[in-house]
Design a protein around this nucleic acid. Structure first.
Lengths: 362, 362
DNA sequence: CTGAAAGCGCTTACAG
DNA sequence: CTGAAAGCGCTTACAG
């Protein structure tokens, strides 16, 4: 009926060789005479042959592909959600013989992460996906990972490193957006404090500068009172510190109208607002989907968050890295901007999050 | 190494039959003796066997599966975008031997759509996906499509019909959201006119009642001046009617602060605002991603839209219907609420639309 | 009602 | 440097 896709047989016939030889040039492994190479290449070209991925997957099921994942387990909602993306990817790719090997680290500590990387490398992974923790870490990480092992970064980038690609939000644009949301919820005008965990990360800095420059550029009726870095490497530490700091800000007066929290710790800042009985008076704008988000939006303790769908990012990263490893040479965009959603009280019921994505991953 | 997934061979061996017989019960086709049926079912159970989809796809490539699509081509941005979702699905499924057959109708006219349905049925499709045009059409459509052909609805539903499942937004919730967005952009308060194309659709009515009830329930500072149905079945008609109506509203005074447009014709309402030199003064809140949306958001002619990602909806619908047809009995949720995004000036750069989804479909 | 055999398109030893 | 053959897990006629 329709003209069938050409198969490896077709091009073998056309080039007058065996399919084994065609396979050799397809994977440029083994030696092939120049003459045959040319013949085969020409045939591939003229028939515009594309290897059938299904057949490939079925046939090479024995030779497992392993992809390593190095995941912090710190902000538990945020990273916990990611695990669901990883599981979805596992389910999607296991019929292709892909095995995912995950290592966790329990603090935002570079040494711990390097240990995880080495652990994963011991398992002879064919590729690696990670979220870098510090901006200076490019060289260290590059030295740690052998050149033969391609790796990708998700959420935070490591520019200047050998990473194959990066998936993550446009943090400057996100900062712009946060400023607008703050402005909308504070109208006619507002005094804002920015609380900044992971303050040393370049991504955090970009969000802040996006926020600040949006305010200036569009002369939003926002007055940025302070930008306060929140220290802490472990989960508990960070929760406590942001909560205490928010409480202090509230007590110090200054006619505070809003907090902007630069990452997923938003909920713990909102706790301070609730504790102070200022829900509705002091708005909280922040990031990510956390367990209490629905109820906090409902009560007004949080006005809006920007949601970067981290589970989806990992899901895509794993799929892309797999395609790269099996040699799908589709030109790879090396910096993929992830989609971010605004979540407010009125749409949280139909924003798909990591735990709600029965059909979220196609 | 790891315990391999059981194959059809394993369960044949365990039940003491041939793989052909196992295959028969897997697809409950052909007659199998009660004894063997029980034996095989037990084996499947105890080994918790899952057929390998890859192998299945490879082996059954000859027997093409055809899925029919019945698509209006009216609001061209909206429906044009959908075609990209269809193409993505085609690319994704063609290695599985799936062929998509698309028929277009060029007006919102039931008779024309029925013709398209019949056209597609003539091609012996194994399933069908459509967007119903009128609420009364359940019976007519049900009579038109043979019982053996499963079909699904996307975007608009046809409750009470035989459709297998529906994917679409929660229109009442969307109306709620639209009210909130209007309120945010009109603060401190605003006079709103609702313009309603496709007014007879139950989905449109739900958006409107969502909007109205949100205003009442939360006592939003919005005053709904009028709700005006916009007639028109063809593209040109609708564009002209909404533009003219919007112009009239503006001229009639009433201190208009905002339009809420209940569907993807938002852009043509904004044209009237631009024409009247009232950009910034009269806000427009609406729906969908259309070609001029980026520039209109930038200039302020449109303040915000709610984007239901129609291409993604079709992409998912096609995949789900395919899985159903090949007998993937995963329990099928028959009413899938699609994710909707808020798009405003500050986030349009990183919202993935149909035409921007290189990595949007996993 | 049941089974042996060929085949889907590719990969992988193995023998030359 | 090259090819014949077996195999991945399932489906599909075909013969009993």
């Amino acid at each position: 009926m329709e003209n069938q896709q050409p198969t490896i047989k077709d091009i073998a016939k056309m080039a007058g060789v065996s399919i084994a030889t065609v396979d050799r040039v397809l994977h440029n492994r083994g030696k092939v005479s120049k003459k045959n190479l040319d013949l085969i290449s020409a045939a591939i070209e003229t028939l515009s042959y594309k290897p059938n991925q299904i057949a490939r997957a079925l046939s090479s099921r024995k030779s497992n592909i392993k992809i390593g994942l190095v995941l912090p387990q710190v902000e538990s909602d945020f990273w916990g959600e990611i695990i669901e993306g990883v599981q979805a990817a596992q389910a999607h790719l296991s019929p292709f013989g892909v095995e995912l090997i995950t290592e966790f680290s329990y603090s935002y500590d570079l040494d711990e992460q390097l240990k995880s990387i080495n652990q994963v490398l011991k398992m002879n992974v064919n590729g690696l996906i990670m979220t870098p923790l510090y901006d200076g870490s490019s060289d260290i990480v590059d030295r740690c990972i052998p050149k033969e092992v391609p790796y990708a970064t998700v959420i935070d980038d490591m520019p200047g490193s050998r990473r194959l690609f990066h998936i993550g939000p446009d943090d400057f644009a996100i900062g712009n957006l946060a400023a607008r949301l703050t402005e909308l919820y504070c109208r006619p005008r507002g005094n804002v404090v920015i609380l900044s965990p992971n303050n040393s990360l370049i991504e955090t800095q970009q969000r802040i500068s996006g926020f600040v420059s949006k305010v200036k550029q569009e002369q939003l009726a926002l007055n940025i009172l302070q930008i306060i870095p929140i220290p802490g490497k472990t989960e508990k530490c960070m929760y406590q510190n942001i909560y205490i700091t928010a409480l202090e800000c509230i007590k110090n007066g200054h006619n505070l109208d809003a907090f902007y929290v630069t990452n997923g710790l938003t909920q713990w800042c909102a706790d301070a607002v609730v504790e102070s009985g200022l829900v509705g008076k002091v708005k909280v704008i922040g990031h990510e989907y956390t367990s209490k988000l629905p109820q906090y939006l409902q009560s007004g303790a949080i006005s809006a968050v920007i949601y970067q769908k981290p589970a989806m990012q990992f899901y895509k990263a794993i799929n892309l890295l797999y395609e790269y490893i099996i040699g799908d040479q589709r030109s790879l965009n090396d910096n993929i901007i992830t989609e971010c959603n605004i979540i407010i009280k009125e749409n949280i019921s139909f924003v798909h999050n990591g735990g709600n994505s029965q059909y979220g991953y196609c």
